[in-house]
Amino acid sequence: MLEVEGVSKIYGGERRGFFGRAPQVHALSDVSLSVRRGESFGLVGESGSGKTTLTRCLLRLEEVSAGTIRFDGDDIGRLSAAGLRALRARVGIVFQDPYASLNPRMSIADIVCEPMEIHRARLGLDGRGRRDRAAELLERVGLGPQHLGRFPHEFSGGQRQRIGIARALATGPDFLILDEPTSALDVSVQAQVLNLLHDLQAQLGLTYFFISHDLGVIRYVCDRVALIYRGRLVEVGATEAVFQNPASDYARSLIAAMPDPDPDRSPFGPRFPG
C-alpha cells in the first residue's frame, strides 16, 4: 500500500550571507520500506533519528531530496493539487502531543468537523451530517455527543488523544500515521489508547504506520517493524523475528536495554530483602 524507495532528505545547504552555506544535515539517507494493506508497521528510533521527518515526507509537508514515495501506486511527489487533497483525505495522522495538536480556540465539534469541511466535496456531508458523524466518531473513540460543545482544555491527556484519533478518522481514511500517539500519556492511559487503536483497526480495516521509541508498545501493536538510526534503516522484519533474533548490533543493544517488568531482575536489586 505504501512504498518508500531510496528516500533521502537533506536539510540546510542554502546560502548564508555572501560566501557561506548552512551545514547540511542528512535527516534520512536511502530509506526503503513497504507497508502492506491492513498491517501495523512499526518504526522505531531514538530522538533525532528521522522518524518524524519521514512522516512529514509521507504527508508531503516536506519534499524529499531523493527517492520516491508511492501510496497505492501513485508517486506522491508528482500528485496534482486534487491528488494531494485526496491523499490527505485517505491518510490520517495522530500526533504525539495531545496538548499542542488541538487548537485551544476551537470546540470539539469544530475540531472533529474540520477535516470533513475541508473534504466536503469528497464526503458529501452537509453541516448537520458532519455534526452527526462527529458525534458518532466521538462515541467510537469512547467519548460522547455531550462533549461536542466543550473545548480542549477541559479534557485530560488521554481524552484529548481520543479526540485527536476521532479527528484523524473523520474523513474515513484507510491509512493512519500514528506519531508516538502514547508517549505523552500515563502508562495506564497508554494501554487504554493502544487497545482503542487495536479495536479500531479491527473494525475499520485500517493500516497503521506506528512510530515510537517504546519497544514494548511496538511489540504489542506491530506486525512488522523497522529500526531507524541516524536516518538509516538498520533492520526491517517481522516484529517477533526482530525481537528474537536481532541481526544488527544496534537492534541487539536496544532490545537489551528494554526494561524488564520482573521486579526480581531489577538492576536496583531486591528492595525488600527477606
Partner: peptide, 26 residues
Amino acid sequence: EEQFVTAARAMGAGSGRLLRRHVLPN
C-alpha cells in the same frame, strides 16, 4: 509552527483556512 497548525495542514487545509481558523484566533 504550533502543532495544531501542522495538523490542519496535514488534513489538507489551505493557507486561508489556516490563517483564519487556526492562527488569527490565537
